[in-house]
Amino acid sequence: MTYTILHRLALGLVTMWVVSPLVFASTEILPGDVAESILGKEAPAEVVAAMRERLGLDRPAYVRYWDWLSGLLVGDLGVSLASGREITELISDRLWNTVRLAAITAVISVPLAVILGLVSAMKAGTLLDRTISIGTLCVISVPEFFMAALLVFVFAVQLRWLPAMPILRPDQSFLSSMWSLALPILTLTFAVLAHMTLMTRNAVINVLSSAYIEMALLKGVPNYRIILFHAFPNALSPIINVIALNLAYLVAGVVIVETAFSYPGLARLMVDAVATRDIPLVQACGMIFSVTYVMLNLFADILSIVSNPRLRLSQ
């Protein structure tokens, strides 16, 4: 097993290494550059050229790539072109905000999805099962920006229960920050719930048709025990993978929700950076998102191996 895990880890590193030139190249393709964006469209060509030289943009791409990559390896993300501040500093607050939102959403949505999925599987074909399936599918089908607006309209404007915009202060208690984040959390939960619920349901139902489930039934094992102890552990692998994918989405795919709620997270920082052609900042955000995806998927792979005795106990 150790070998398999080391193998996966190595693959993860290779993936990240392959991703880095892609991230770098894709930012190069962006039309216009930071010099133009700082000086405005009307600036004379010589001034723009001077600015480009000052920012080091006149050097060939591979030189800049090498500089960038060697910086990354020692944790130096460079300097923002637009503001002149250290990117590490710019990002750290925003990253913490994004991770906090993602973590709270995950803590709520993952158990909820698994429980809904298990209940659905246990009551497969009944009205409850269909309600859960259709309900989760309905909420995922509503676009996030619309869902955000709808929730704000109902809970903040009409009912006045929850704040429309999250106001974050450093001295806030956990509960009050939860309170102010309630609507973004709800919107995100709706977005990730269906996928995980349906995967849990289908994976468990698939296992329920196995001979060993019939055996358990014929031993007189009650339904809930069959689902929890006989079926669920054998359905874990696909469920873990879908959860990882959705967690990655919570970090890297939240741009619409962050924008809709004017939430100061990493995704919005990236969008702003794209608008100002602040290439080092876009690249840094891009790499962080990629690393999150790769790490979470890697983690899911390793968990799947550990949860399966046949893989765990092999050499």
Binding site: S210, A211, Y212, E214, M215, A216, L218, K219, F229, H230, P233, N234, S307, N308, P309, R310
Partner: peptide
């Protein structure tokens, strides 16, 4: 009443 199935390989839960 206890049951013995045709295939033990299938009737045993692989993760228990």
């Amino acid at each position: 009443i206890a049951y013995v199935a045709q295939s033990a390989a299938a009737a045993f839960n692989p993760s228990m």
